[in-house]
Every structure is written in C-alpha cells, then in structure tokens.
Simulated scan of single mutants.
Amino acid sequence: MRVVAKFGGTSLGSGDRIERAADSIAKAVSEGNEIAVVASAMGNTTDELLDNITFEADEQDRAEIVSMGERTSVRLLKAALTARGINAVFLEPGDPDWPVVANDRGEVDVEESERRARELAEKLDDTVPVITGFLAEDHEGKITTLGRGGSDTTAVMLGRYMSADEVVIVTDVEGVMTGDPNVVEGARNVGEITVDELRNLSFRGAEVVAPSALSYKDEDLDVRVIHYQHGDLLAGGTNIEGQFEYMVDMREEPLSCLTVAGRAIRNQPGILAKLSTALYESEINVDAVASGMDSVTYYVDNERAEDAETILHDQIIGDQTLSSVTVIDDIAVIRVLGAELPNQPGIMREIVDPIADAHINVVDIITSATSVAVFVDWSDREETLEIIQEHFEG
C-alpha cells in the first residue's frame, strides 16, 4: 500500500509528538507499506516567524523566512526515523528530488510537479522521503508558498501525482465529529463524510482539511483524517469520500475595493511589496489583489477600509510614482474552485455571460490555477451566487 502521510503543526508540536509521529511511520513501514511524509512547521512556528518580520521585507525574503519552520520539522522527523532504523531523507526546495514546482505566476506547474512526483514515487520501495509542506520552488529556484492550508494541498496533490492509495491527514482532531465535544455531550467521530459535506463545513469554520487541497482529490484517492495520538496511520479517523470538479463559495462579509493609481506601476520594482507590507504591518488582511499597468487594487474587509485608505494614502504621499487612492465599499466575492479551472477554454464566458444576461455589473475578476473570483456589488451577491451555482453545481 502506498500512503502519503501529512503531519500538521500540532502533531509535531513537541519532541514527544515527533517521537509519536516517527513511531507511527516506522510501524507502517515495517508492515510493508510505501510511505511518503509531508510535514508542517512545528506548533505555531510559522506565525511566530511572521511576527518577527517587523521590518519591510519583500515577498521572496518573507517566503525564505517562513520556510524555516517546515525545514526544521523535516530535519527533526527524518532524524527520529533514522534513529528507528528507517532509511529516510528530508526534501526541501533546492533538493534535486524536490517535487512541487511553481510557474512564473506563482501557481503550481502541474505537468512538471506530476513528472517529479512520479520519479519520487519510484524510490519509495526503500526510502521514506520527508517533504516540507506548504512550499514550492519556481523554475529559477526561488521559494514560494502554496497559501493557507498549503501543507494539506502538498499532501493531497502528491498523493494524486504519486498514485498513492491513500492520503492520511494527521491533525489535532479525531476526524470529523458530530458536534463540538467542548460544547455538546456525547459527540462522536463521523466515520465517513463526502467532499461536498466537508467543504461546506470548512467554509463555516470547521476546517479539518483545507478546501484548496480537496480540489486535487479524485475518486481513486482515499483521504482520511486521524488524531495525532491515534498511533496507527492505516486505521481509524474519518474517511473523506468522492471528488468535486467545481466548488462555489460566497464570502459572508462585504469587502472594500481600494485602487492605487500611479504611472506605470507595473514597471516600478518594489511598489507592490511596499504597499502590501504597509497593510500587513497594520494587520489588515488582504482578501485579493489585482494589478494593471497603472493601478493596484486591494480587497479588504469593509470594517478596515478607512484604516487601509489612510495607510495607502501615506504611501502615495511619499512616492512620486503614485497619484491617488479610491475606495468602493460593499463588494461581494463569489469564488469558483476546481482543478486547473482557468485553463479550460471558454470557462470565463460560462461564468460571465449569464451574469451579464442578468444585467449584473462585474466589478472585477481574478483568476488563479484552480479558481476564479467574481466581484460584484453587495446587493447583487445572492443573484450572482444563484446564477453561478446553477451552472456549476446544478
């Protein structure tokens, strides 16, 4: 049996937990299974590293810094496995066998990542690779990250590309529960749950597996969630069944759209990093960013719009290449997620045409390798959601 096991930050949060993780891996290997391991940063290491970036740092430096959490985890776990007589190696960006590759847009290069993952799978008969989750490497060798839930994404993606039988997510919950055990008496583990059910729970706060990771799951790949205290990688927990091609989600709170205009912004090195860092240092979360030749647009929570406008205006005053900032409040975003969605010919027309036919103005569209985000006026959100759901989920 070929298994990709992902250990979350909590499951690697101390020396004892690393020992427990190594024991479960060694047990699975001793039973004749091929195991690849994906490791998150220990505990809250990533947040702690980010908190220590109190200076202006560009995206490349930030990625290098936060990568140290995962880099430390894989070394500790590899050493624990070696101490148990397991032939293990740790893999991180820069290694010749590193499998997760990003393109020049910072998105997963599916063809190259799949090729490298297949090559890595051929070595599983005598080696346990311990792979840094959350990280990717572009074609120039620079580190980038996979975003929120990136270690889950690494695990499920590699499980698919390595033709694994199962991906096991080891976390701090015993799979999916019938209710919050801290609130309701008698809460118990749900033995099975569908991808659709789980994604609906995830978008309402009960995130067990990152929704972005589930886009890589297909019918042939089993995904299971177990508690780090369980001890047996190959049994128990909650099985996640099925697959989805498209997932439609609407953000529950309104956004504000802040557009910074300036002369040839796209050709000004460091402008985007400067503006983004200023927002980050004020703890303003950016939901999405769009850029053009003469503008950069940030979408932030409505309640932080005034703060964001002031911060961006301060940056404009200090930079002669920037001219003004404008704000539009009460914007809704509806996202369609699916594997390689924007790479499908005609997909944008399938999304936009029925919205236009309903005489709804589209404020903006932002795409990535696996999603399309449609921004409309808050008053049009329900009708837009219904139109998109009817097409993709109907």
Rank of each mutant, 00 (worst) to 15 (best):
G8K: 06
G9T: 10
A21M: 11
A22N: 09
V29M: 04
S30I: 07
A36Y: 04
V38D: 01
L49N: 07
E56L: 11
E56P: 10
D58N: 15
D61V: 01
E70T: 09
T72N: 01
L76R: 00
G85Y: 02
N87C: 02
A88E: 03
P93W: 11
D95V: 07
W98H: 05
W98F: 15
V100I: 15
V101I: 15
V108K: 03
V110N: 06
V110D: 09
E112I: 01
R116A: 07
E119F: 01
L120P: 00
P129S: 01
T132A: 12
G133M: 02
F134K: 08
G141K: 09
I143M: 06
T145M: 05
T145I: 08
G147E: 13
G147V: 12
G147K: 10
G147N: 13
D152Y: 10
M157Q: 07
Y161E: 01
S163N: 15
D172W: 09
V173F: 07
E174Y: 11
T178C: 07
V190L: 15
E192V: 08
N200W: 07
N200R: 15
F203G: 07
F203I: 08
R204P: 09
G205D: 00
E207K: 15
E207W: 00
V208W: 09
V223T: 06
V223S: 09
R224W: 03
Q229M: 13
G231F: 00
L234S: 02
G236I: 05
T238L: 09
I240Y: 08
Y246H: 12
M250D: 11
E253G: 03
L258G: 03
T259E: 06
G262C: 14
I265Q: 00
I265E: 01
G270T: 02
A273F: 02
Y280E: 10
N285K: 11
N285G: 13
S291P: 05
D294K: 07
S295D: 12
V296E: 01
T297E: 09
Y298T: 07
I311Y: 13
I316K: 06
G318L: 02
D329M: 10
A332C: 05
L337E: 02
L341K: 04
Q344C: 05
I347P: 01
R349M: 11
I355N: 08
A358V: 11
V363L: 10
A369P: 02
T370V: 13
V374R: 07
S379C: 12
S379Y: 13
E382W: 08
E383Y: 05
E386A: 12
I387Q: 14
I388D: 11
E390Q: 14
E390P: 00
